[in-house]
Amino acid sequence: MYNSKIIGLGKYVPENVVTNDDLSKMMDTNDEWIQERTGIKERRWIEKGSEDTSATMGAKAARIAIERAGLTKDEIDFIVFATLSPDYYFPGCGVQIQDMLDMPTVGALDIRNQCSGFVYAVSVADQFIKTGMYKNVLVIGSEYHSGGLDKTTRGRGVSVIFGDGAGAAVMSRTEDNSKGVLSSHLHSEGKYAEELTVLGPNIKKWVPEILEANDPEDTSYYPYMNGQFVFKHAVVRFSEAIIEGLQANNLQKEDIDMLIPHQANLRISQFVQRKFGLRDDQVFNNIQKYGNTTAASVIIALTEAWEEGKIKDGDTVVLAAFGSGFTWGSVIMKW
Rank of each mutant, 00 (worst) to 15 (best):
Q114E: 10
S159N: 12
A248Q: 14
A108L: 02
H145S: 12
Y89L: 13
A295C: 09
E195N: 13
V106R: 05
P223Q: 07
L278D: 03
F231W: 01
R274Q: 12
G94I: 12
K135P: 06
R156A: 03
Q228D: 11
N214F: 08
Y120C: 04
A193F: 10
T152E: 04
M100I: 11
I46S: 04
A166R: 08
F322K: 00
L101H: 10
V122W: 08
I260L: 08
A264T: 13
R44I: 00
F322Y: 14
N177I: 15
V106G: 05
T219E: 13
V318S: 01
I46E: 03
F78N: 14
F162H: 03
Q263G: 09
S239D: 02
E189T: 04
E189W: 08
L246V: 06
G163P: 14
S172M: 01
R274D: 12
E240S: 06
S146V: 12
I287G: 02
A108W: 03
Q288G: 06
V170Y: 09
P216G: 08
V158M: 10
T327D: 07
E244R: 03
L199E: 07
V331A: 07
G291E: 04
Y120N: 14
L23A: 05
L182G: 06
A264G: 14
M57T: 09
A125N: 08
D74F: 03
S159L: 05
A321V: 07
K191D: 14
N3C: 09
E143Q: 05
G107N: 09
C93V: 05
S183M: 10
S146M: 05
D77L: 08
G147R: 08
S188F: 12
I268V: 15
D99P: 01
P201S: 13
M258A: 00
N136H: 13
Y224R: 09
Q282S: 05
S146T: 12
M133W: 14
D313S: 14
T174P: 13
D313A: 13
M171G: 05
K151E: 09
V170G: 04
K60C: 04
E36S: 15
T19I: 13
W328G: 02
C115L: 04
L71H: 00
A320K: 03
V207S: 03
D164N: 00
A320N: 15
D255E: 05
I268D: 07
C115P: 08
N202C: 15
I129N: 03
G291N: 06
I287C: 00
V17D: 06
T327F: 02
T294D: 01
Y290H: 06
S85F: 13
D21E: 15
A55I: 06
I97V: 15
T53Q: 03
S116H: 02
I34D: 11
G309D: 06
